[in-house]
C-alpha cells in the first residue's frame, strides 16, 4: 500500500465572483522512500499541493489517505498530531522561532509529544549533528547564515522521525553553493530511507529526484520516473 494515496483532489479559491482552481483534480500515489519533485511554472499549484500533503491545508474536494488513514475525516487537533508524527515540513523561508536558539527550535516539536527535557535535548542534538550543525546549537536564528538556518529547519523536520519530509522550495532563498550542500543532504536522507517530496522550479534540483511530477494549471501534466538514480548537479 502506498504511503500517500490521493484521489481527485481539488482546491478552489473564491475571489469575488471568480473561482481560482489552484488544484483541479489531482490523482497521485507516493510510495515509501520515494524521492519526488513537483515542478511547474509559477502559480501552477505546487505549494497548494504540498500544503495539502502536509495537512496544513484542506482540499476543497477529493480523498487523501496518509499511511492508510483518511485525513479528510480528521479535525484540527488530530491533524496537529499527524503533522507532528508523520510529517516534517521544510519551508522556503525557514520559519524558525525567532526567540529560540537552534537547539530550542529543534526541540520544539518534541514538546508536543510531551517528551522530557533531557530526552528532548538528546534527540535534538542528534538531529543537529546529523545536519552538520553540532557546533551551532546555541545560536539564535538571526545569528545563523541562510544555509545554517535551513539546516536547523531540516533538523527540526527530522527530529520526530516522520514518514515523509516535505520541502517547499527549500533552496529558494539560498545561493548555489549552499543549494548544492542542502541537496546533498537530501540525497543522503533519501539514501537512509526517508521519503522526500520537494517543490522546486530549478531543473538542477529536480534532477536529484527519482520522480518528477510536472504541474500545470492545477493539474498533473507529466509524471515521470527517472531510472538509474539521481543525476549530479552540474552547476
Amino acid at each position: 500500500m502506498a504511503l500517500i494515496e490521493i484521489k481527485r483532489i481539488t482546491k478552489f479559491y473564491e475571489m469575488g465572483s471568480q473561482v481560482v482552481k489552484a488544484l483541479d483534480g489531482i490523482d497521485i500515489d507516493v510510495k515509501k522512500n520515494d524521492y519526488l519533485a513537483f515542478i511547474g511554472s509559477s502559480g501552477s499549484g505546487k505549494s497548494t499541493m504540498l500544503n495539502i500533503l502536509g495537512c496544513l491545508d484542506k482540499p476543497t474536494t477529493g480523498e487523501y489517505h496518509l499511511n492508510g488513514k483518511n485525513v479528510e475525516a480528521l479535525e484540527q487537533n488530530e491533524l496537529s498530531e499527524i503533522r507532528n508524527r508523520e510529517i516534517g515540513f521544510i519551508f522556503q523561508s525557514f520559519n524558525l522561532l525567532p526567540r529560540a536558539n537552534a537547539l530550542g527550535n529543534v526541540m520544539q516539536p518534541l514538546i508536543y509529544r510531551n517528551i522530557g527535557f533531557r530526552k528532548r535535548k538528546e534527540m535534538a542534538m542528534r538531529a543537529l549533528q546529523r545536519v552538520g550543525l553540532g557546533d551551532r546549537v546555541d545560536h539564535l536564528p538571526n545569528q545563523l547564515s541562510g544555509g545554517q538556518r535551513q539546516r536547523v529547519a531540516i533538523a527540526r523536520a527530522l527530529v520526530t522521525s516522520p514518514s515523509i519530509l516535505l520541502a517547499d522550495e527549500p533552496t529558494g532563498n539560498l545561493d548555489s553553493r549552499t543549494t548544492i550542500e542542502i541537496m546533498q543532504l537530501f540525497d543522503e536522507l533519501h539514501a537512509e530511507g526517508h521519503t522526500l517530496i520537494v517543490v522546486t522550479h530549478e531543473d538542477e534540483i529536480a534532477q536529484h529526484c527519482h520522480r518528477v511530477v510536472e504541474m500545470k494549471d492545477g493539474k498533473i501534466f507529466n509524471d515521470s520516473t527517472v531510472t538509474g538514480g539521481s543525476a549530479k548537479v552540474t552547476a
Binding site: G54, S80, E81, R83, N84, R85, N95, Q108, Y112
Partner: peptide
C-alpha cells in the same frame, strides 16, 4: 509555525 510542527489547540 508551532501548529505546522504539531502544536494542538
Amino acid at each position: 509555525i508551532c501548529k505546522a510542527i504539531g502544536a494542538k489547540r
